[in-house]
């Protein structure tokens, strides 16, 4: 546990309503459980008594005081899942992993838990492994789910996956291509941009694969700064449009050949992307073209 992280989390929530719960949620996100020392620190820093904080930490189901495994498997036990045989699914996980719900394997690989209802009742029984939903699960699927979780549940992150195709984008200001065939990321051409932050300026290359957030850069970036992204061709800073759905930071637009925009978040720790293929100008043009 790093005291600085805890201090930052507490500072982020200072003076807000229900702060204790949000603070504990953030700590849990970071460590996957609530370390004793962290709770003592929260008590000291917020001036609340430890007994109240400990009460909150044990009252809510989202919190765990025991370290959890690297992979979290949650089996939904909502009514709809129950009538569709969810208890049998839990039994099967219990058998295969040698765990009862709430326990963690000795090698800290898996934690098994049951949740009350995930609200995806139409697809039950539902199992969520590391954030990936598996629907209409049968006992015979359990082995497969464990295997998928062990090997990285999303599974679609490798460059060999055919569904992940590369995209070509242009500078929205000068129209030059930003594709860099020489610098490869994930076995594909990368997207070449310049980046500046904290007075440093250098290159950055983003994976051109759809949905990927891989990147390489000249200078290591601290996790939480807003960077300026600019075009290596014309040197101008990209305009900031739209706000990132994940973190609220501004996003810069990179244009697709033929219309549409790939937005990239300008916060170093996030840099998530969003694709919008609607381009108002183009829309108007086609409308008139169609009429003609």
């Amino acid at each position: 546990m790093n005291p600085e992280h805890i201090e930052k989390i507490i500072a982020d929530h200072e003076g807000r309503q229900g702060a204790i719960i949000s603070i504990l949620e953030d700590i849990q996100d970071l460590y996957h459980y609530l370390p004793e020392e962290a709770l003592r620190m929260v008590a000291r820093k917020t001036g609340q008594s430890l007994v109240d904080i400990y009460g909150v930490a044990t009252f809510y189901k989202a919190f765990s005081l025991k370290p959890r495994g690297r992979h979290l498997i949650s089996v939904c036990m909502g009514t709809a899942c129950h009538v569709r045989s969810a208890p049998g699914i839990v039994d099967e996980f219990t058998q295969q992993l040698g765990l009862r719900p709430g326990e963690t394997t000795e090698d800290s690989e898996f934690t098994l838990e049951t949740v009350n209802c995930l609200g995806t009742c139409a697809l039950g029984p539902i199992v969520v492994a590391d954030g990936t939903y598996f629907s209409n699960v049968k006992r015979t699927d359990v082995k497969k789910i464990i295997h998928k979780a062990r090997t990285g549940a999303a599974g679609a992150r490798s460059g060999r996956d055919e569904r992940l195709f590369p995209v070509d984008v242009l500078c929205p200001l000068c129209g030059r291509t930003l594709t860099d065939a020489h610098h490869q990321i994930e076995n594909n051409s990368s997207i070449a941009l310049d980046v500046s932050f904290d007075g440093k300026k250098g290159w950055i290359r983003l994976s051109s694969l759809y949905g990927s957030t891989c990147r390489e850069s000249e200078h290591e970036m601290p996790p939480d700064v807003l960077v300026s992204l600019s075009c290596p061709g014309c040197g101008r800073n990209f305009p900031e449009k739209l706000n990132c759905i994940e973190c609220g930071a501004p996003m810069v637009p990179l244009e697709f050949q033929g219309g549409g925009v790939l937005y990239v978040c300008a916060r170093s720790g996030c840099m998530s992307r969003r694709i919008s293929l609607d381009v108002p100008v183009l829309r108007a043009e086609t409308a008139s073209a169609r009429q003609a």
Binding site: R163, F165, V167, Y210, G211, F256, Q257, G258, G259, G260, I275, L277, D278, V279, L282, R283, E285, T286
Partner: peptide, 20 residues
């Protein structure tokens, strides 16, 4: 997956202006 497939097809064939 459907959205990804749709984006792929639209970008590959430059259909951005004709379909949303």
């Amino acid at each position: 997956e459907l959205i990804r497939a749709a984006h792929h097809h639209i970008l590959k064939n430059n259909l951005q202006a004709r379909i949303r």
